[in-house]
């Protein structure tokens, strides 16, 4: 699979990769008011990396991202849980949300909720999950299952 690389596909993927990542971030941040959210965002980002895999195989995938996928998982979980714990520390219930409005000058006023951080955690976990799936089942670790085929 890795030998037959098409230049056109490669280029398309390059272009689309970043578009998809941007889209995923949009979904993440817009989710509270529009369809979307951390899940959908994370999944779109996963699709971006999936495309990389389809185009370039597992080596391209590991080149495009240097942090181990497990770290995404761990950090994502930590993010989500700590969001809950913060409210616990401030004397509220676990996972209790607070609404912020921030004046970002040029971009105008943004009203958002603390659960955004929670959603970022979700995003990271979903991303880490799909990366790990692609790396493992796709055989990126030198334990290529093809070698055991008779």
């Amino acid at each position: 699979m890795t030998q037959r690389r098409s230049v056109i596909l490669d280029l398309c993927v390059q272009a689309e990769f970043h578009t998809l990542l941007l889209l995923s971030l949009y979904l993440l941040f817009a989710g509270h008011n529009q369809p979307g959210g951390g899940f959908a965002g994370g999944l779109v980002a996963s699709c971006a990396f999936g495309l990389r895999y389809v185009a370039g195989g597992s080596s391209a995938l590991s080149r495009s991202i240097s942090i181990p996928a497990t770290t995404f998982l761990g950090v994502g979980m930590l993010f989500a849980i700590l969001t809950g714990c913060v409210s616990l520390l401030t004397g509220h219930e676990f996972l209790e949300s607070a609404i912020f409005s921030a004046d970002l000058m040029v971009l105008g006023t943004v009203k958002t909720s603390s659960v955004l951080f929670f959603d970022i955690g979700v995003y990271l976990v979903v991303l880490g999950m799909s990366l790990l799936l692609l790396q493992q089942l796709g055989g990126a670790d030198g334990t290529d299952p093809d070698e055991v085929q008779p």
């Binding site: 799936l133 493992q136 089942l137």
Partner: peptide, 16 residues
């Protein structure tokens, strides 16, 4: 989805 993915890995392993 998560759990079925794991089951697929089992199938894969079983085949190996």
């Amino acid at each position: 989805f998560g759990v079925i993915s794991f089951l697929l890995a089992i199938a894969y392993r079983s085949w190996v």
